[in-house]
Amino acid sequence: MNVLNLVHAFFGDGAHWHGYDGIPTRLAEHVTYSLEALLIAAVIGLPVGLVTGHYGRGGNALALIATAGRALPSFGLLVLMVLWIGLGLVPVMIPLVVLAVPPILVTTYEAVRTVDPSPVDAARGLGMSEARVLFRVEVPVALPLILSGLRTAAVQIISTATIAAYVGLGGLGRYIIDGLYQRDYEKVVGGAALVAGLALVTLLLFWAAFRLTVSRGVRRSA
């Protein structure tokens, strides 16, 4: 049994391209879950990371929270959430967000905290408000690292969002879980290839975002 043959067979099968269990549907579901989870994690992680990084305080507390977040097993958390609050999207979102917040939080904190202090001092001395100092001076310089934190989070979410299928939801995990129960390895491998492909596309998108948003002055002096 050759993995490449399986991939080829999976994508060559026309039946995999239509309907509620077709690749377009599953892909769209997967992207939706992933984006939702990333958005929630960013809404939590970015502001906290930016503010703590700006004031350079709370690093130890953040490290503790981040370690705890990483230590919670996503799959176990999913099962526990389903037992507590029943099936649905919420029990899936919770482990995904718990997974994604630590890299966003810690990287953003570190990125802002380690910005060269002398431009920041100059900015204050020239009369920028604290908010301006953060968004006009610190964030543009910290952006490459902040983006890398978001990227790590995004790739982990995409890979882990497959567990949604275990609790009856859709997404690319459907192929893997169904394939497991049906002993259909073609499906499993096809699903895995799709997830890996989606992760690669995500990396590409982050690379494009980096090129678009990071100033040439920062890119080159890094």
Binding site: V3, I176, G179, G191, A192, V195, A196, L200
Partner: peptide
Amino acid sequence: TTVLYAIPSLAFFVVLID
């Protein structure tokens, strides 16, 4: 390594069962 990292663990397990 990035591609390998993106493969869901469950898929990895299932393929190796064989």
